[in-house]
């Protein structure tokens, strides 16, 4: 089923941090990882994230499950960059017919692979620990994001877990009416496509009805909305941002000192 399986309890410290603070921290870290071109900076950032992990209240097993695909993606990036490097620098490590991989190119590839790891881990840390309602509340209250767009998006997000149920309903209805792909791959593909289409049309139809339901409750008026749930920037939230900034600065500093830093 399509739900965001949480990687921590609702009372874990990271789940209670202000979502905007978490987003800012993650933005800081990932931008640094994007800018830095060496292998040491992302490695240090990754290490920093691993160090804070025990203090966040995140459970290890679901986190590992979430991060599993990451290694695959990181691997791809390493291979592509190494194989198609503009020039194979360093000692040639491997030759396969016309293809050769040099140590320099491989190291550059690894740097990029680490960049993927930083991005993915940071993404899980913020998104898998944030309740969408809290995120929308914080976006409107702290960042003054336009409430109609944030709340509208939040309402649409509620449909996410329903998509799977909707899919089941459509296929059940088709079975009841005698439509089924069976073993014929062509028929199966066509039915799959038409089920997808039905799902999409159903989603747009729902959007219209949801919009009507929201308007009926006074959503689209000029009155400025109030907020039932307050989101605040507490000292701890500022600390999260400061910590991220500190870690990013330290990683860059170490890497510069070690002489590996490039952009």
């Amino acid at each position: 089923m399509l739900t965001f399986a949480p990687v921590c309890g609702p009372d874990a410290p990271i789940a209670r941090a202000n979502p905007v603070a978490k987003l800012a921290a993650v933005a800081l870290v990932t931008v640094v990882a994007l800018v830095a071109g060496d292998w040491l900076t992302p490695l240090l950032l990754l290490a920093a994230m691993l160090i804070v992990l025990p203090f966040t209240g995140i459970r290890a097993r679901p986190l590992a499950r979430r991060l599993r695909w990451l290694w695959l993606a990181a691997g791809t990036v390493v291979i592509v960059n190494a194989l198609f490097a503009a020039e194979q620098t360093g000692r040639i490590l491997l030759t396969l017919g016309p293809v050769a991989i040099g140590s320099g190119a491989l190291l550059d590839g690894v740097a990029i692979g680490l960049r993927v790891c930083v991005a993915a881990t940071a993404g899980v840390l913020v998104f898998a620990t944030t309740d969408p309602t809290d995120l929308a509340d914080a976006l409107t209250q702290q960042l003054k994001a336009p409430p109609r767009f944030t709340i509208g998006s939040l309402a649409a997000l509620r449909l996410l877990p329903l998509l799977g149920a909707e899919w089941n309903q459509i296929t059940t209805a088709r079975r009841a009416r005698g439509l089924e792909g069976g073993w014929n791959p062509v028929r199966r593909t066509r039915l799959f496509a038409s089920t997808m289409f039905a799902l999409l049309v159903g989603a747009i139809r729902r959007a219209g009805r949801l919009a009507a339901a929201m308007d009926a409750r006074g959503f689209d008026t000029e009155i400025p909305r109030t907020h039932a749930r307050e989101q605040r920037m507490r000292p701890g939230d500022w600390a999260v941002i400061a910590l991220a900034a500190g870690a990013a600065a330290a990683a860059v500093a170490v890497s510069v000192a070690a002489g590996t830093f490039t952009v």
Binding site: T133, M214, R217, F219, I223, T226, A228, R229, E230
Partner: peptide
């Protein structure tokens, strides 16, 4: 939250 939604739109104080 669903019940509160209509109240927020009416600008009822928290």
């Amino acid at each position: 939250d669903d019940v509160a939604f209509g109240l927020e739109n009416q600008a009822v104080p928290r």
